[in-house]
Amino acid sequence: MIPVEYELILSTALFCIGLYGVMVRKNAIIVLMSIEILLNAAILNFVAFSSYAPPAGDPAGQVFALLAIAIAAGEAAIGLAIFLALYETHGTTELDKIRLLRW
């Protein structure tokens, strides 16, 4: 079995990269993708801990991961719909350029 520390390092790294994307990138779509990475880093932890749980793993973590995956997919769809609406009104998805909350 892989040491749990390795997995934690991996998921931390992923989370950091995702956070970097969320904070630095201006493009809304890339930000959405970064959020996907964030979520996946978190799901990874769920899965890992569920398999490390004694004696033969705890399925609760996997169930939670399943739920999170479904929510992530839904979140992506809703986010894209919002950005599509934004794009149609503002003509851009650069987050800097969208300064009005109302249109």
Binding site: Y6, L10, A13, L14, I17, G18, Y20, G21, V24, R25, I30, M33, S34, I37
Partner: peptide, 12 residues
């Protein structure tokens, strides 16, 4: 994990 971290860096 190398693929993963590399890929996610490429994403951002």
């Amino acid at each position: 994990s190398v693929l993963e971290i590399g890929g996610s860096i490429m994403v951002v």
